[in-house]
Amino acid sequence: MAVVFDRPHALVDIPMHYCPGCTHGIAHRLVAEALDELGIEGKTVGISSVGCSYNNYFYFNCDMIQAPHGRAPAVATGVKRSLPDNIVFTYQGDGDLAAIGTAEIVHAAARGENITVIFINNTIYGMTSGQMAPTTLLSQVTTTTPYGRDPKEHGFPIRVCEMLATLSGPAYIERVSLHDIKHIKKAKEAVKKAFKVQIAGKGFSLVEMLSTCPTNWGMTPLEALDRIKNEMLEYYPLGVYAGKDLEV
């Protein structure tokens, strides 16, 4: 019988620990498919961060490094400057990348560091049980904004793609969403393009993925997907923020 759908080689065949309905699994698969299709698993070094995906080194079949909270872009810089012919990616959540790791991501982007960043934005801290993230939407209830995020108290959510796109360093920045098949297919293209940008030596690439956290949002998986569509897309518009005309 012909195999029409299979696990990518770059994904290890073990059960994942993520909650039901969490989109980390989809994001992992998209990265793994890109590594397979571009034939780069063998020369890729991935950097996991701190958060729910800290141990994705169990899941990705390429060489992996676990980085301190927020520091993945600095660790990736160290690897890429040591092994310029290898492919280096970081996989970071919104707390990791946009709060504690703001300096590292901004300067890796400003340097045009030739790495690829996969940025998971689910507007909440997942692993530590649902605290406010820098991307938490206004009025969103979290365990540290129990009365909703109030801009007077908690400030405003950060739009990472827009912010980084003000820099001259990044070659390619795109925001995608994982809330339905159509968008997942677009996300796949974005991930592949980001790696191609790196392979071509064009510089810094980042793909932000609007993602779910049903557990900490207090929603069913389907409600969570709807929340991306109905609430997140308005504040986090999809699209290419840097490298619109870049051909790779």
Binding site: V45, A74, V75, T77, R81, S82, A103, E104, V106
Partner: peptide
């Protein structure tokens, strides 16, 4: 060789972490 002025001491030691992971003397 590579000389890189990092954005902070925190970033510098993490770049060391990356280069050491890559097996280089750093």
């Amino acid at each position: 060789g590579v000389f890189l002025q990092a954005e902070s001491e925190v970033a510098a030691i993490n770049m060391v972490y990356g280069a050491a992971s890559a097996g280089k003397r750093v």
